[in-house]
Design a protein around this nucleic acid. Structure first.
Length: 507
RNA sequence: GGGCCUGUAGCUCAGCUAGGUAGAGCGUCCGGCUUUUAACCGGACGGCCAAGGGUUCGAAUCCCUUCAGGCCCGCCA
């Protein structure tokens, strides 16, 4: 059984209503690794709903968290003063709006593109609106118990006058002040300068520290399931302490969970926004079809790491996905693969197989044609497809866009080419010139189909006792200005016969 | 030091939740398609399921131990 269904079954044992939670701190571009978290959660939501339950997906934007440091992608001068302040209160890097929204907006757009539409929780606003009041109060009332749990389970020592609140200084920065006294809803502390500051706990002046904030969210939102990264899952980590806090102090339920592994960039290691070694969700969508992105997450077990190769490997991933799609409709898949395919669909599962064009072929066409429209016409002319319906058209269009993005940012040189508008000036040898004459005649007189074109080179090989390779080389040189290129039969068939003959005639 | 995960064919992995004759794709080799680029079709080769022990009529699957690899582990998230 697919992992999402295994979890769904377990969840449904305790009821039909479920809240699946996911979240991230929007401190930088939100990357593909973070997308795994929410796609994993989304899979569970779909699985529960498919089995007749009623699950909703909640996305918590942890924008009450402070900016930890000036990240490499930030302007040092401008952002130095904001370190320590809640992300929701900092201006965006481009000056428009707030910092958190600057990163969240494109991420939500990306999520929409992969078919995920969560209910968004603005954590900062939650604090402001007093949503945390009850939990905060309960924790404060039981702060010795809380301290006990944290110290015992995490094995760290808390200061003598520990108070379960991250204070907010008068300059707006979150800080570790010295706790003085407390009287709901106010807490008084001494800041570094020795000044007494008051925070109103009901108004979001400061926040709960993460290890208390997380279990509080479970209770406030009624979370029944959460997928989280293995950094939280370590012994004595925030999940371990969170479990006890929510059970013993908040008297609420511990959510079910799974731990997911990181996504590595092939040959480079785990993605981290802080090191800059990351592909943002946005960027990802500009080079890979959304259903393939989903499939990369749905196919493997969540606890296995995924190696993502934005180079040639991406083509393999798309090919594999397309093959799975075909086999799905041929009813030829094992249960897990079949389910992974279903969970990879952006919208509902189409009940008919769509016409698919081999992705590698599209990579060629995208570089020789101006638009998706032209590509479609060409494919119809070469007999690769019959007329496309609306869905197929959209798919073609979006895939062409992905390929264009991929070609310009990630593709290796070996697959790139450009049709030369003017005949490249090349010093052909005498023999080459003779072959060009032979080609002129051949190209002008054959049926312009991929197979015929392909065969014709071998006819020349027979006729003139010259390796077909030589003819290939010449064709690439005259049209692309380089010695290699895409499979010639298919490629030439996609451009005008007239153009090819004229090109040869100019030598 | 503590913890989690992983170890199955040359490579990438499925199978383990529920024990019942070891699977797929890719690669390799052979054959076919009048044959370039990571093309297509058919077939073959290929595994003491990391090692050892236990439970069982029966273990890749459950339990214990060992080894190897990856990652996580102040605060913050």
């Amino acid at each position: 059984m697919h992992w999402a269904d295994v979890v769904a079954d377990k969840l449904l044992e305790s009821g039909t209503e479920h809240v699946i939670s996911s979240g991230i701190t929007p401190s930088g571009p939100i990357h593909l690794g973070s997308m795994r978290e929410i796609l994993t959660a989304d899979a569970i939501v779909r699985a529960v709903n498919d089995k007749g339950g009623n699950a909703k997906l909640i996305y918590v934007a942890d924008n009450a968290d402070p900016l930890r440091k000036v990240y490499p992608f930030l302007d040092e001068k401008k952002f130095k003063e904001y370190v320590g302040r809640p992300l929701a209160e900092i201006p965006a890097p481009d000056g428009n709006g707030s910092y958190d929204q600057y990163f969240l907006k494109p991420f939500f757009k990306s999520l929409e593109n992969v078919g995920v539409i969560p209910e968004v929780v603005d954590n900062y606003q939650f604090y402001k609106d007093g949503k945390y009041n009850d939990c905060t109060k309960t924790i404060i009332d039981n702060r010795e118990k809380a301290r006990n749990i944290l110290e015992k389970i995490s094995g760290r020592q808390l200061p003598k006058n520990w108070f379960p609140w991250t204070f907010k200084d008068e300059n707006g920065k979150l800080c570790n002040g010295k706790f003085l006294r407390y009287e709901w809803p106010n807490v008084y502390f001494e800041n570094e300068e020795g000044k007494e500051i008051v925070n109103n706990l009901e108004k979001g002046e400061g926040k709960l520290p993460w290890r208390l904030d997380w279990p509080s969210k479970w209770k406030i939102l009624g979370v029944t399931f959460e997928a989280f990264g293995k950094d939280h899952a370590t012994k004595g980590g925030s999940f371990d302490t969170g479990k006890r806090i929510v059970k013993d102090i908040l008297e609420s339920k511990v959510p079910h969970h799974i731990v997911y592994e990181w996504i590595n960039l092939k040959g480079k290691g785990a993605m981290h926004s802080s090191t800059g070694l990351a592909i943002s969700a946005d960027e990802m969508l500009q080079m890979a079809p959304p259903e393939v992105i989903r499939w990369l997450i749905m196919q493997p077990q969540p606890n296995r790491h995924v190696d993502f190769d934005p180079g040639l490997g991406l083509l393999n991933s798309v090919d594999r996905y397309d093959r799975i799609e075909n086999e799905y409709y041929d009813n030829n898949l094992e249960e897990n693969s079949s389910r992974a395919f279903e969970l990879s669909q952006i919208k509902e599962i189409p009940n008919k197989k769509a016409q698919t064009i081999p992705y590698r072929h599209l990579v060629t066409l995208s570089q020789s044609k101006e638009s998706a429209d032209e590509i479609e016409k060409t494919l119809m002319r070469t007999g690769d497809i019959s007329e496309l319906n609306k869905t197929e058209k959209d798919k073609l269009e979006s895939r062409v866009k992905c390929i264009e993005g991929w070609i310009s940012n990630h593709a290796p040189e070996s697959v790139k080419f450009e049709i030369q508008e003017k005949p490249p000036s090349i010093n052909f040898s005498k023999e080459d010139l003779k072959r060009i004459e032979e080609l002129k005649e051949q190209m002008g007189n054959i049926n312009w189909s991929p197979e015929k074109i392909h065969d014709s080179f071998y006819e020349l090989q027979e006729k003139y006792n010259t390796p077909a390779k030589e003819y290939f080389r010449i064709m690439y040189l005259t049209i692309l200005g380089k010695e290699r290129g895409p499979r010639l039969g298919f490629f030439l068939a996609t451009i005008e016969q007239k153009f090819v003959v004229e090109r040869l005639n100019s030598y």
